[in-house]
Design a binder for these strands. Structure first.
Length: 287
DNA sequence: CGTGGGCCTGTCTA
DNA sequence: ATAGACAGGCCCA
């Protein structure tokens, strides 16, 4: 598929920590999307892939998001402009909401390698094996599989205290007492409120699920890295009291989270989520 | 309604 | 090598 000048940086998009189940073998990226293995690489202006059609690829990687327009809207200061330039072509992937939800419930209080480890274990144990190119892949387990698993078998995947959250949330999804897809139709605030009712889902997890899988590009997840960005580069735009409070090493209180989250959404606007990803990645790579 | 302590366990760092 | 700190927060008192 020719990109025809559409900005897209495959490596940064897959490395920046929004998805956890992609691996690079040689110069090909492999990832399981739904029940099919994607194999994809970038070569000049060409996006080469195997086992998937162009429309699916375009949709999954959000290539129809107008990055130039987004950039002109969020590019409000030197800091974000620098990040946009450095990682130009970074896209927000449209993940499956179910997989995204479980992934970010697992992600609390863990670093990225550990998150990968947990999700890999879950998929090996409860997903379906798919062999492709002589390599083994596993689909992400269906809600039914996790809802019928025991908490201890989930914990064996390295989930620790998250095992019971994953179990209880899976049960709610499996039983149909909670539906993810309809949240797309709700306004951001309302969808977020619904997500809070799930065990293991707080402010941060809800924002990640909304941004990475439910199309709410105005969501602005605040984690320790985003807190650092705001502290290091946006302190002048924040209330002094708030800056003082978040300067302490501990995590954010609910109030502090909400204030930083609102700042991001008000300041960057309808595509605040894109700003968050560029700033987040920039802070992680360069400090 | 706001706040603080506890938490499973895999990496990272010294 | 091996212990101790830290990790993309959330829940409960």
């Amino acid at each position: 598929m020719r990109l025809g000048g559409v900005p897209f940086n495959l490596d940064v998009t897959l490395c920046c920590g929004q998805v956890f189940r992609w691996d690079k073998v040689g110069d090909w990226w492999y990832g399981v999307v739904g029940d099919c293995v994607f194999k994809i690489r970038r070569f000049d202006d060409e996006l080469e892939f195997v086992k998937s059609d162009a429309e699916l690829v375009r949709h999954y990687f959000g290539l129809d998001d107008d990055l130039h327009r987004i950039s002109s809207i969020i590019g409000r200061d030197a800091q974000i402009k620098k990040a946009l330039q450095r990682f130009w072509g970074l896209r927000i992937i449209r993940q499956d909401p179910w997989e995204c939800l479980i992934s970010y419930i697992c992600a609390t209080y863990k670093n990225i390698p550990a998150i990968k480890y947990m999700l890999d274990n879950l998929s090996r144990k409860f997903g379906q094996k798919v062999v492709f190119d002589g390599l083994e892949f596993f689909t992400f387990p269906e809600p039914a599989k996790l809802a019928r698993a025991s908490v201890s078998s989930l914990a064996e995947c390295g989930l620790g205290y998250r095992a019971k959250y994953v179990f209880e949330t899976s049960k709610r999804i499996f039983e149909g007492s909670f539906e993810l897809e309809p949240l797309r139709q709700l306004p951001y605030e309302q969808a977020k409120k619904e997500l809070y009712t799930l065990p293991g889902v707080g402010f941060k997890v809800a924002d990640c699920v909304l941004l990475f899988s439910l199309g709410k590009l105005e969501a602005f997840p605040v984690d320790v890295w985003v807190k650092r960005v705001l502290l290091n580069h946006y302190a002048g735009k924040l209330p002094k009291e708030l800056v003082k409070k978040i300067s302490k090493p501990e995590g954010l209180s609910n109030v502090e989270y909400r204030l930083l989250n609102e700042f991001g959404r008000n300041y960057f606007g309808e595509y605040a989520g894109y700003a968050q990803e560029y700033l987040y990645h920039s802070e992680r790579v360069h400090g």
